[in-house]
Simulated scan of single mutants.
Amino acid sequence: MFVSFAGESFQSLSYQFRMGVSTIRQFVPETCQAIYQVLKDKYVKCPDTALEWQQVATGFLSQWNFPNCIGALDGKHINIRPPPGSGSTFYNYKHHFSIVLMAMVDSYYRFLYVDVGCQGRVSDGGVFAGCTLADALENRTTNIPDPAPLPGSDQLSPYCIVADEAFPLKEYLMKPYPHRGLPPAQRVFNYRLSRARRVVENAFGILASRFRVLQTTINIQDTAKVENIVLACCALHNFLRTESCEVYMADMVDREGPDDAILAGRWREDPALQQASLPRATNATTRAKLTRDNLCQYFMSDCGAVPFQWGKD
């Protein structure tokens, strides 16, 4: 089973295990589905109480100095063979056929939420808008705690998820300030947000490096079976991250050196999963912009600044 996660073809597996290709093509997705069903409730569980969200936020504050952060969000392409008759539905901007893996991770590189299967031509922001997490956040059914004071301050700030430019700016979803030539305060904010958001890039990198089938074009035209394989990879990633961390994570993640420079993890030696494309526009509300501006000001204050943020772009 684990040989298929290494990215070998069904033809290669049929030679190794002396089974017919059609047999392997059937039981690999079925086994992956079983793996996910067994592991998901314990190892791929999105927080559903205020206390669980606060525990995630504590991790981001202690690990990455970003207060009231409850996750880092991103989307990546998984290359596939297009289903018959699908036309350009799965054709992405990198000229491959793909589905999108949308995921939110905690500060320890574990997947809290996974959505897989949206067509590759849809942007990150578009995928997010159609997933159950966005619906729950928008309708306030996730039990996220009420806004809390920022550390060392009496300023209330909403709990939020950090993401890149592909996503819409919301009170619960923080993204960088756009454009170049930003003033120092906004450059500091972008650095602090990028530092927290890097965990999701590392999580995807580790996932693809350990389960190398994700670096290939998955040779199955049934997208439901592809989804089973991807979900099993995510569940096994969390299982191994939790139960066998030292072996599984050894030298894999980015580290910060003595001068706070980034030391690349081993996952960067492998080809990175393709980033989903940017949407044409992401309109933001006044309240969302104010939330970002307040965080920006906090990071420049005596109680919110960290020594290594200065001079970072």
Rank of each mutant, 00 (worst) to 15 (best):
residue 205 G to A: 02
residue 248 Y to N: 01
residue 111 F to S: 07
residue 46 C to M: 13
residue 56 V to C: 09
residue 265 G to I: 09
residue 210 R to P: 01
residue 104 M to V: 15
residue 137 L to S: 03
residue 216 T to Y: 14
residue 24 I to N: 05
residue 107 S to K: 01
residue 10 F to N: 13
residue 95 H to V: 00
residue 292 R to Q: 15
residue 76 K to S: 14
residue 43 Y to C: 02
residue 223 T to W: 00
residue 96 H to S: 15
residue 156 L to A: 00
residue 247 V to N: 13
residue 74 D to F: 08
residue 84 P to S: 10
residue 284 A to G: 06
residue 78 I to C: 10
residue 310 W to E: 12
residue 4 S to I: 05
residue 138 E to G: 14
residue 130 G to C: 08
residue 99 I to P: 00
residue 23 T to W: 06
residue 267 W to P: 12
residue 299 F to K: 06
residue 142 T to K: 04
residue 140 R to G: 02
residue 44 V to M: 05
residue 256 E to C: 12
residue 308 F to N: 06
residue 133 L to K: 07
residue 128 F to H: 08
residue 281 A to D: 05
residue 205 G to S: 01
residue 198 R to K: 14
residue 285 T to L: 04
residue 280 R to N: 11
residue 198 R to S: 09
residue 57 A to G: 03
residue 22 S to V: 04
residue 31 T to R: 00
residue 146 D to C: 06
residue 183 P to F: 11
residue 256 E to D: 11
residue 147 P to E: 05
residue 55 Q to D: 14
residue 4 S to W: 15
residue 164 D to A: 07
residue 68 N to V: 01
residue 139 N to S: 10
residue 60 F to S: 06
residue 134 A to Y: 14
residue 236 L to A: 04
residue 108 Y to G: 11
residue 203 A to L: 12
residue 97 F to T: 08
residue 313 D to I: 11
residue 261 A to L: 15
residue 92 N to Y: 09
residue 91 Y to K: 04
residue 99 I to E: 00
residue 285 T to S: 11
residue 201 E to K: 09
residue 89 T to Q: 10
residue 43 Y to A: 03
residue 108 Y to K: 15
residue 304 G to L: 06
residue 280 R to L: 08
residue 268 R to W: 08
residue 231 L to Y: 01
residue 181 G to E: 10
residue 210 R to L: 05
residue 272 A to F: 08
residue 288 A to E: 04
residue 193 L to M: 10
residue 99 I to H: 02
residue 31 T to G: 00
residue 234 C to H: 00
residue 288 A to W: 04
residue 296 C to W: 05
residue 250 A to D: 12
residue 157 S to K: 03
residue 24 I to G: 05
residue 31 T to A: 07
residue 139 N to R: 11
